[in-house]
Design a protein around this nucleic acid. Sequence first.
DNA 1: GGACCTGTTCCACACACCGTAACGCCGTTT
DNA 2: AAACGGCGTTACGGTGTGTGGAACAGGTCC
Lengths: 269, 269
Amino acid sequence: MPTKSSGAAPGREHAGQVIASVERAAHVLMHFAETPSDTLGVTEIAEALGMSKAAVHRILASLRVRGLVELDPATRRYSLGAGAMRLGLACLDRIDVRRIAGPELVTLSRRTDETATLSIRTGRHRVYVDQVTPAREVIMSVSLGVAHPLHAGGSSKAFLAFLTGEEIEDYLSYGPLEPLTGNTIVDKATLRRELAAIREAGYAQSFSERMPGAASVAAPILDHHGRPLAVVSVSGPAERFREEARHCAEMLLESTTRLSAQMGWTAPG
Amino acid sequence: MPTKSSGAAPGREHAGQVIASVERAAHVLMHFAETPSDTLGVTEIAEALGMSKAAVHRILASLRVRGLVELDPATRRYSLGAGAMRLGLACLDRIDVRRIAGPELVTLSRRTDETATLSIRTGRHRVYVDQVTPAREVIMSVSLGVAHPLHAGGSSKAFLAFLTGEEIEDYLSYGPLEPLTGNTIVDKATLRRELAAIREAGYAQSFSERMPGAASVAAPILDHHGRPLAVVSVSGPAERFREEARHCAEMLLESTTRLSAQMGWTAPG
DNA sequence: GGACCTGTTCCACACACCGTAACGCCGTTT
DNA sequence: AAACGGCGTTACGGTGTGTGGAACAGGTCC
């Protein structure tokens, strides 16, 4: 059997009739987004995705025609191209919460002198879509566009806590909670209690749950149904954050309350 | 001959052996970025790109598996998905000029009370990669990620003017200057004089050259070789901009001078 | 110089993808 | 109501296209 039939993606169910080569091309493309390195070689990709070098080469040549990837003739290595950027920008341009939250992130970062971030949810994950870093020496900086699970870290827990009970149970039922660090909550009962506490407090906090040495406070921006549209966080190095947390949380809630109001949310009661 | 061989893309030369279906899939994907509407239907795409409905449907189904596009089951219409966003964010995260210029755009917008934008060049075009809009009623707002030619409008001319003489001639030799409005400069000799004036002044200005009713001033951010890394503009409605232009240009140059210095540029002389 | 990487090209065969055409499914129209 | 036109989706069989393995070419490193 030369071609590996079926296989498909890890995520979704059936999706009708698909073209194997297109699906593989999409896989190659997404690999660029998921890998930390800026450039990739043909062999590197072929090995990572279990494809033949020839196939990867042909795919890259095809994607190159539309500018989705670029080839550096000197190094013979490939990277994401202008087309990919335009694709992402076209998406971002349609997420209006980002435009609205932008100035607030700047304010928040200035007032706390820490990094302010904005995340949105994509199914069982979330991604950072914006960040504003303060002008000081030691800061936190996140990678935009990388998917993170919903159970580890401040922003993630803030999302999870404000979903419906059904959605939370659905998330939990999917499988075991993978630890990202030694501090990640992996026990489901513990996580349920934590989420209840977050709803009570109105914000989540995390010390090294997702990334060692990083700490954050995070709160959701709610729409007029009370559903979390996005999450704002303030994060910094764990050492100095321990004493700043309360102050940051205050500033954070002030910002997210204002943003939620702009998105049509009205406080209960 | 059922399949239309060759054809390829309008832009590039040969690119070795390519896979027709992947190239077409990329074409479909890019169509989402280029079209102003958020969602597209199968027939709509098929007609726009001259493909059969069946082919478009199969391509969309394949892209959907990797999350590059999403299907709204209610309307049966497709839009860009989370994967596309992650792709773009992965790119943007690697453009550090954007991170550095961000705060300056905020400052600039506040000081002028107009829209501040940031563009980067992609070959014979440029795209807006960021914008900050002021909090007032009537404002300019640009579309991020859409490609614009280099001869029409403030930001475009600012790029062109600061390229090398060889690059400028190469651009001009490519074909006639397509007018985007009645004010677009279409005569090459006139454009050359205009570019010289821009280099002299240090900034470009435009009234309705790219978009009717829109005006702007724009200046480049230069790296340590004096090459334009990016262009910053301040833009607004043409009517009120006529009297604001000089003041905006002052603020603009202050910002771009600071940014160029940060990128390693040192003023000549 | 040769061993060992890369990325790229060649080739003939199998089979995956192509377009045509028919299928449901909604809205609106007659 | 029933017929229409629009949509997105599926079926099908033939052909031409993409497949993987292996050979090629151009590097760098011992």
